[in-house]
Write a protein that binds this DNA or RNA. Structure first.
Lengths: 271, 271
DNA sequence: CGGTACCGTTCCGCTCAGCGGAACTAAGAT
DNA sequence: ATCTTAGTTCCGCTGAGCGGAACGGTACCG
């Protein structure tokens, strides 16, 4: 998790972002030494960055424990990010229809670096239902929403990710690279992913990918809920309507499957 | 607006945050040259920072216009930032009681740099009601929630702010520095601020400050609604209950008005 | 359709921001 | 009392990255 990819641009900016990203990776409060170990930077550097970010209200320091947490500027920054998210805005009405059609919780995830984040959800109206935590990062190997993104990533990025240490979330999380590779292939054949209890015990979900106008995967939508209502068979039976709705979002983002504006599936930013 | 205060910590981190903060100050999309002018940095520097931030999904670049907007990683901070706000968590139950007592919309604002942001609200149950947009930044000179913060800022910070160009939000926004100074003094005498139509036409509000354990103002709560229900007299009559609730929040944050751990109203971070 | 005025992007040599090892203090834990 | 681990501060050396200049692209002229 302490991987710093060869960054374009200035390194100092990348440091700031990776520091900030720590605070949405589960753990809320961090100390200087913890961060220094996690990012492989000297305590002095981390301390100075934390001071700067605290002065700008992006972080706040707990007087007692001396630990840092996200501050009001982070909240404002995030709210602005939500508002100006094309994906979220475009997906909202489609999610509403999907929710009406299934009466289960439906979610929207977005790719962020080599992880994903829940950008939106509409909860089921049933009494027993599932609800996810918005704004928290999850790895791509656990759960259908993540793995369907993994399956449609460019091979370079997928392989790079598969060569890192994959985190275990539940006892059902798949960690083996070969198993993941095989599953990704299966997912690409049918167009959607199904999972049970990989990210959240007692939960089942089916997810479909969303593409942008460059034909690259940018996120996914899912139907999810308690496992005793959503067996594999039920999830499979929902894949049709799910795929239709996912495709609708992609189309509105400018995706054209038959588009050949690029010669082939494009890789990075090389000419 | 292109002010860079003498920052503690590393300057490069401050640069990154001030760049990010640009994107929550109204304008959604920014180009390299615009930012370079706004922040007083060379285009080369800005370009490199933008590349780094884009690679990390904090920003995305519009292929057509080449302008940058907030990306999915930014959106991830929305929910996460809100969740980890102490102020918000502590204030929530108090806001609920205040809402029950008044049946008007009640809001929570937090100081961010020289502006404020709405962190939370509970909307009135009436049909004609007011609702604010969470996570949006507003200047301190417009509206009661902002000005009550301004009134209790340290004199240094207040004067510094009054010497900058104040933005006009509505035709009723007060811009004159002397008028603001006088109003701040009046506010400190009674402990609360009242405003009508300064930030939002047709809206009236009364606001009280919230202090932390350093006796510094960190935010405010307000009661607000349509002006024809909330005349100045009505707003004044609500100030008592408002002040009680605000005080309750401050106390839970560790505020002790009779505390003399510091000799006098403290300024900055000097020993 | 050459001229003009922007835009974003890239290059490269110089320089000072800031890195990091070390020293220090504070607070638990043993 | 001693050990461990936390956060913070200091200072001299150095390479990350600054910024002026040059370049290529696009849009709007007259």
């Amino acid at each position: 998790m302490a991987e710093n990819q060869k960054s374009s641009g200035t390194e100092s900016a990348t440091r700031v972002t990776s520091l900030l990203l720590l605070f949405i990776s589960g753990k809320r409060a961090w100390g200087v030494s913890e961060i220094s170990r996690e990012l492989g930077l000297s305590k002095a550097v981390v301390h100075r960055m934390l001071q700067a970010l605290t002065a700008q209200s992006f972080l706040t320091q707990n007087r007692g424990t001396r630990e840092y947490t996200l501050g009001p500027a982070a909240a404002a920054f995030g709210a602005a990010g939500m508002r100006s998210s094309d994906l979220r805005r475009v997906a909202r009405p489609v999610l509403e229809r999907l929710h009406a059609a299934t009466n289960e919780t439906v979610t929207l995830s977005s790719l962020v670096g080599e992880q994903r984040v829940y950008l939106d959800q509409i909860e089921s109206l049933r009494e027993i239902k599932m609800a996810v935590e918005l704004g928290r990062l999850f790895p791509l190997n656990a759960g259908s929403s993540g793995r369907v993104i993994l399956a449609y990533l460019s091979e370079d990025r997928r392989e790079h990710l598969l060569h890192t240490v994959l985190p275990r979330i539940t006892s059902h999380t798949i960690l083996d690279a070969d198993a993941l590779r095989a599953d990704c292939e299966r997912i690409r054949e049918v167009g959607y992913a199904v999972s049970q209890g990989e990210r959240q015990v007692g939960a089942g979900s089916v997810a479909a990918p969303i593409f942008d106008l460059d034909d690259e995967v940018v996120g996914s939508i899912s139907i999810c809920g308690p496992i005793d209502r959503l067996s594999v068979e039920v999830l499979e039976s929902m894949s049709g309507v799910l795929l239709e709705h996912a495709h609708e979002i992609s189309t509105e983002l400018g995706y054209h499957p038959d588009d050949s504006s690029h010669a082939h599936p494009p890789a990075g930013r090389l000419p």
